[in-house]
């Protein structure tokens, strides 16, 4: 009987709550980065649509999301596809577009921390130096930026609002600490006019 390796997450699944705000790691998802090879973009778009039933987002700073699947823009000609565990995401993509794009498994490379609750945008504004006004950063908007000193991919998951901070696994605990500190720091009075 072989030893079974049990997975271990860097952040406990139990959400941390401060008032009505909550911070919790998202369930582990399969993540694959897709980076288009030269002159392959049209074919890649077609192949992804065919394989996943969802399109690559048309513009930088956006994501397409449907039924548990999300595809985030993460750089020029580069995307991050995320799907629930057991979706066989890598296999599907390899078959469909292995010739058109570099595919790299990022399932373990990144951790998603979700911040949600009333005034979550005011807490996020303590971390990321980007404009979170709904006109600039709405539902499914994506930004590659830094939360304090930590590089993150930020996505607005829900209008509630809720934000996904997608962070390198090794930095997840530091980011979790920083977000929690921002939550404990309270909502600035000027947000609550």
């Amino acid at each position: 009987m072989p030893d079974i390796l049990s997975p271990c997450a860097p952040i406990a699944a139990e959400p941390c709550r401060v008032g009505a705000l909550s911070l919790a790691p998202a369930p582990l998802e399969e993540m694959v980065s897709i980076s288009s090879f030269s002159n392959s973009l049209p074919a890649l778009r077609e192949a992804v649509l065919h394989a996943l039933g969802a399109s690559l987002p048309p513009a930088p700073g956006t994501a397409t999301r449907q039924q548990g699947l999300s595809i985030l823009w993460i750089g020029p000609n580069q995307w991050l596809a995320c799907a629930p565990q057991g979706s066989g995401l890598m296999e599907k993509l390899q078959v469909a577009c292995g010739a058109h794009a570099a595919l790299t498994d990022q399932t373990d490379g990144r951790v998603t921390l979700t911040l949600c609750g009333p005034y979550a945008h005011a807490i996020a504004a303590k971390l990321v130096p980007i404009d979170l006004h709904p006109r600039c950063f709405g539902l499914s908007s994506v930004a590659l930026t830094q939360a304090g000193h930590i590089p993150v991919i930020l996505m607005q998951r829900d209008r509630q609002p809720a934000y996904d901070f997608i962070v390198f696994r090794s930095l997840a605990r530091s980011l979790h600490h920083d977000i929690l500190a921002a939550m404990r720091g309270g909502i600035p009075e000027s947000e609550q006019n």
């Binding site: 700073g61 130096p129 930026t145």
Partner: peptide, 11 residues
């Protein structure tokens, strides 16, 4: 050109 205007600390 991809990410819009950002602070110099990102560069």
């Amino acid at each position: 050109p991809y990410c819009c205007t950002r602070g110099v600390e990102e560069f």
